[in-house]
Design a binder for these strands. Structure first.
Lengths: 227, 227
DNA sequence: ACCTGAACACCGTTCAAGT
DNA sequence: ACCTGAACACCGTTCAAGT
């Protein structure tokens, strides 16, 4: 039997930006946040590492494309309704689920401004919901930013936690170290130390979204009254 | 004249963790997010690059110490009052100002869980304010997380923008690219394109904090009523 | 036009040797 | 005990050469 370790030459035009992003996502899913290198991309693609440069100007450029891919995954099958709150809740949890499905990629690329098509689709979907809440103009752009801040920040952070060099996971939540040298200096933290040790970030996210949408509902009511 | 390019040998014990973090902060302030390397640390410290390993186990470990330093800078001169809202506003803007003063360091280290003393001081200060708002127990820990999420996420993101490979700055705000191939596909974004192009992130932050504290005030009133 | 492979200028980290 | 310097196993990126 002949072991053919030699890689076959890639036919010209057989490599595409899409296939490269596929490979990047797979590598990150399997091997974590630090695993995405040109060498590994080459191995996964069956090409020379440098072939990637024919399709992306740099690693940074590739990460932006990966970010737009995450937006695409997040929006897949999304259908807006007539309820702005339903839509903003839906979109928020979609981002959260992407962070769980692709933690390393989310940590690396989710909080990037990609200027990609799918990012634009997301912006448009959010502005549509805000419009239905009666929030328009500059206020809508402000609220879009606040909403995106919460959702993207929380999801990317969760990805970093899941993929990461972070603290070890426990069934109930996340172990957070609390071991002060002199506890009397931090009485409020000391009083809550057992609660601080176990934080369930999904509950935090749910609460955060709920609070924000409640606050938005107040603005929506005011906008209604002004109509 | 004799040019002495040779570095003098560091006396033993003359290097400290604090001095190394000083140097790291200075390098990042002067040369940006990608500039922090062991080689440059060595040059700045007048030591061999590897001397740093005597005080930090890894680059990651050093970045955690840098994160705690940012917390220290943020809290310098902080004095709590009897008004929980004043305190939470103060702490939020302190983080924002640190991001402006040290953008690259903030982008790299601000959103880390450092387990440092100054992080604990910040946690305690926030829990104190929440307690004065009548928010206690598990709810306090949840609200601490939500608040920290907003503040640290916004500030670290602002640092990344200021230090970064981001979009070019304009006097009024930040230029965000909006150049869709078919604008009719994104009607809501299209309608707000001029607003989307100019985003003032400080106004977004101010709005975000204000909304959150308003929402917290509602919880505080409910807690008062329950007393 | 697209892919390859050698070369370049780095990087973080390890470790035996100095003082 | 702490600092040094050589060595190691990588990195992203450039570029001339192949097909």
């Amino acid at each position: 039997m002949i072991e053919s370790r030699e890689r076959q030459r890639r036919k010209r035009g057989s490599l595409s930006a899409e296939e490269i992003v596929d490979a990047a996502l797979r590598i990150l899913d399997d091997q974590g946040e630090d695993s995405l290198t040109f060498a590994r991309l080459g191995t996964t693609l069956g090409s020379a590492p440098t072939a990637v440069y024919r399709h992306f100007a740099s690693r940074d450029d590739l990460l932006n494309a990966l970010g737009d891919r995450l937006d695409a995954i997040s929006l897949a099958g999304y259908a807006p309704t007539d309820e702005w709150r339903t839509d903003l809740e839906d979109l928020a949890w979609r981002a959260w689920r992407v962070a769980i499905a692709h933690p390393a990629a989310s940590a690396l690329a989710m909080s990037r401004i990609t200027n990609g098509v799918n990012e634009l689709r997301a912006v448009d979907a959010i502005l549509r919901a805000l419009e239905r809440a009666g929030i328009r103009g500059r206020e809508a752009v402000l609220q879009y930013q606040v909403y995106a801040n919460i959702v993207v920040g929380s999801a990317a952070g969760h990805g970093a936690r899941l993929s990461g060099r972070g603290e070890p996971r426990t069934p109930e939540g996340w172990v957070q170290a609390y071991t002060p040298t002199d506890p009397t200096l931090y009485p409020y933290a000391e009083a809550l130390k057992s609660e601080l040790r176990l934080i369930d970030y999904e509950t935090v996210f749910a609460k955060h979204i709920e609070m924000y949408l409640d606050a938005l509902a107040v603005l929506a009511d005011r906008a209604d009254a002004a109509d």
